[in-house]
Design a protein around this nucleic acid. Structure first.
Lengths: 347, 347
DNA sequence: TTTAGCACTTAGCACATTGAAGTGCTAAGA
DNA sequence: TCTTAGCACTTCAATGTGCTAAGTGCTAAA
């Protein structure tokens, strides 16, 4: 158990360090504390906090910086989220105050906005119904044997892909295939659709098209697109800001990580169960990110599912400000999306 | 006029410097030259080359490096493009040897490939018919008052956009509007289409829809998309490789330049008239790129127009190898696209 | 015109010096 | 028992010094 004074000191060290990035020494600290003790006393307290693993030194005679455990303690017990600055709130609202035609646009814009506000890297994940249902499938002939396939799910997401139709497929056969899909797959959850695509559907389609694989591949590809392409990343470049000597090779691997949506998904994966979650340093499952901190928050769009927003910054980020900001942002985003759905559901 | 020996020396300096990046000294150089002279002689020659502005020193007692003018002279008079390495050629061909459904995929893949082969940053521009014609326009209802607009041009490019239809628009009116567009605009060049959109079309459409602006804006937006979204950038990160101390702020502005397609367009703009063009340092119109060199090349897809590929690297790039590579690449790309068009035109 | 020789310049590196900031420990005071 | 002044000690970071390697320009002789 920590004494009140220890708590005060730990809290002050985290706040000062996340503010100016310099290790905190006993003398500097004593002048900023509301209590009247000498620097020697502070030194003693610091030593015990270090013994407990909450602080550490960067070298034997340096000031103290919080350890991962120290940050964790601070976040869990000492931190109070800042109220979001009204200028930030205004910025968010004015950015959301435009006409968006698609959810993707809103969520993508959110990633950029969030990265701008924090000057970190931001991620946004579209609201996802666990059991999104296939709502419709269309094939639109474009001429020259090309066709656009469009897939709509009941959470409002639209995916499309153009492809070439082999010459041995005649239009009537194609019609029949679409009918099969519309009759038998529309209304099912995407999971069920995938299952059917591996079992009976190829057989049925095979009656009309000689090589159903080619066609079904395209269909499956769009389906996959709609279940994997729901990430947006904003402010990738901000990664360069916080690490004085950006080591090209690590930057490189981080950037490529951000291209791989599956890996990102696994990082953000568990977040859906929590409200606002802070992962610090090696608490993040991905090894590449072990020197960063990740704040994730869910946002809830009522019956249209939940999404995730996240920011990735240095472990020494000002947590209280960031948590306040992320908290406010998700509320705004959720509201904006509710409005969006309201528009398309009710007009 | 330069003497033979001066030419030999200039050529050697450019080649050695672009190879290992170290300024070239007289002693080092004399050992690599096929002629038997002393280092003092080389020094004299170097001094005269420097007087002519073809060489420069990094500091008063350093070896020589080529100046912009020196590179220019080398590229214009001394360089012979390398034959492309067969391993590179194999790599290109195997990458092109997959099924592509859209031109965009081919051209985007090209940018990545080219950046990988060169380890520089690469740009590709889709083949563009000066007078691409509007070939078709479709509206596909998606349910919930949402509609996908699809636009096809006769160079094979497909653009689409979903949007919400105001509730006061009834389906029959929409039908009529599509008919107007299909009857009156299909077959025209995009330039003409834009003109008509500003003159008589709004009046005609106004007969069926109360506020034609909203609808026509969407139409115009897709049109613009199809005439501006034809750039692809590969290997952005490679910019980090060649500049030992990547200054974050300059990297930042370079990256944002690559997001602004209009600015990029102006950089690559003049290239269409040339075959293979090399721009060195401040010859590039954009100021941000004045420490880089840009090699651009057109590729010709017969009646389907011309495109551009380009690589951006340090001024000290090995020009002969790069020019050879870019030359070979564009041939392969052109052939691949010709095959693609052949497929969709003739089956 | 070429070359050997020489004095001179510079970058880059290893190394030492110094000052600022910080620590731990001890012994005395409250 | 807790607090504190004082002090010796450590480390970083900035600065300066000396040395070497690589290069240059210039001069005078071949």
């Amino acid at each position: 158990m920590l004494t009140d004074r220890e708590l005060l000191i730990l809290k002050a060290i985290v706040q000062i360090y996340t503010d100016d990035g310099q290790p905190v020494g006993s003398k500097a600290l004593v002048s900023k504390l509301p209590i009247h003790v000498s620097s020697a006393t502070i030194r003693n307290e610091m030593a015990t906090l270090e013994e407990m693993g909450l602080l550490k030194k960067t070298h034997s005679s340096s000031g103290r910086v919080p350890s991962i455990k120290g940050y964790r303690y601070y976040v869990d017990h000492l931190l109070k989220p800042d109220k979001v600055q009204s200028s930030d709130l205004r910025k968010i609202r004015s950015s959301f105050n435009q006409q968006f035609q698609e959810i993707d646009d809103i969520v993508a814009e959110s990633a950029d906005m969030l990265s701008q506000l924090t000057s970190y890297t931001a991620f946004t994940v579209k609201p996802e119904l666990k059991d999104a249902k296939l709502e419709g499938f269309r094939l639109v002939p474009l001429g020259n044997h090309r066709v656009m396939a469009i897939l709509v799910t009941d959470n409002g997401s639209v995916q499309n892909r153009t492809f070439k139709v082999p010459k041995n497929v005649n239009p009537e056969a194609l019609e029949s295939v679409i009918r099969i899909i519309n009759d038998q797959l529309v209304g099912l959850t995407l999971g069920e659709v995938f299952k059917r695509l591996e079992t009976d559907i190829p057989i049925q389609v095979g009656k009309y098209i000689e090589t159903p694989e080619g066609f079904l591949d395209v269909f499956e590809e769009i389906l996959k697109k709609s279940s994997t392409e729901h990430f947006f990343v904003g402010g990738r470049l901000n990664l360069l800001n916080f690490s004085k000597h950006p080591d090209p090779s690590s930057i490189r691997s981080l950037y490529s990580l951000m291209g791989r949506s599956t890996d990102l998904a696994s990082v953000l994966g568990g977040s859906l169960d929590h409200n606002i979650q802070v992962q610090i340093g090696n608490e993040i499952t991905n090894n590449l990110l072990k020197n960063y901190s990740l704040i994730t928050a869910t946002y809830d769009v009522d019956q249209h599912g939940k999404g995730v927003i996240a920011i990735l910054g240095p472990t020494s980020m000002p947590y209280s400000r960031m948590i306040g900001l992320v908290g406010a942002f998700r509320t705004e985003l959720a509201q904006r999306l509710i409005d969006y759905y309201h528009d398309i559901d009710d007009i």
